[in-house]
Design a protein around this nucleic acid. Structure first.
Lengths: 119, 119
DNA sequence: ATAATATATGAACAAACGCTCATCTATTAA
DNA sequence: TTAATAGATGAGCGTTTGTTCATATATTAT
């Protein structure tokens, strides 16, 4: 047993070498914070359901509300979050606004999560 | 323009065909709920940071607290969440409990998120 | 211009969340 | 057995989050 493994655990932490090594390799805090924010968007049932719907077809807000059995307002609020995180895009056609997925990534992110869950 | 696109939007929703089609293809609600819960775990800076540390090396609670500059209690609470979601596993060695990633998936999930953010 | 309708948005409120603090358990050493 | 230490956990508390409700904006039809 190495010296610094004996000094445990308060002031001088157990594995100083390991702690140092990891500190150097860690990504910047702001990046990890952004990453957490990114996943946070997927971490809500309503938003995941919206994304799953858009996986199948472009949809207007009203259709989304109908499919998911929720109010237009609730859907609209969540669409804003999804748009801010660049997960969906929209186009206007008269009074109607159509939403669709912003890129192909999203499908693979969702499938990957599904794999982890269903195994 | 088809008939059901004219009846817009309240009682009879805009695109009944689209709504029906999507309803059939959607995964079960309980699955989407589990998926959201899964991503929710990644949606917190502390937990993401813990996972990133464990990506580099197995670590005891005390080391993790030291590396991340947080209290042992805070880390311990989050480790419980990570363990419940089967993202980390642990082994006891005397008084010390070592945590490590539960499987290889996690690395690829994190990298995929990073890609989306940094592009 | 006025009415109707699809969507967006701010305020309010309840629920969920993450941290702290105190305390408890488990293990080792004296 | 008692003391010391690593880790786990419940209660409390302030913050964040998601929904509702009311209202505002944008577009189209009359």
């Amino acid at each position: 047993m190495k010296k610094n493994e004996a000094e445990c655990c308060d002031v001088i932490c157990v594995h100083n070498d390991r702690v140092e090594m990891v500190r150097e390799k860690m990504p910047e805090d702001y990046l990890l914070s952004e990453l957490a924010d990114f996943y946070k968007v997927f971490g809500d049932t309503t938003r995941i359901r919206i994304l799953c719907v858009l996986l199948e077809a472009e949809m207007c807000v009203c259709d989304l509300a109908e499919v998911l059995g929720m109010t237009q307002s609730a859907i609209s609020h969540q669409l804003r979050v999804l748009k801010q995180m660049k997960l969906v895009k929209n186009r206007r056609e008269g009074k109607t606004v159509y939403y669709s997925l912003a890129d192909g990534h999203i499908q693979s992110i969702i499938s990957q999560g599904m794999e982890h869950i269903t195994e």
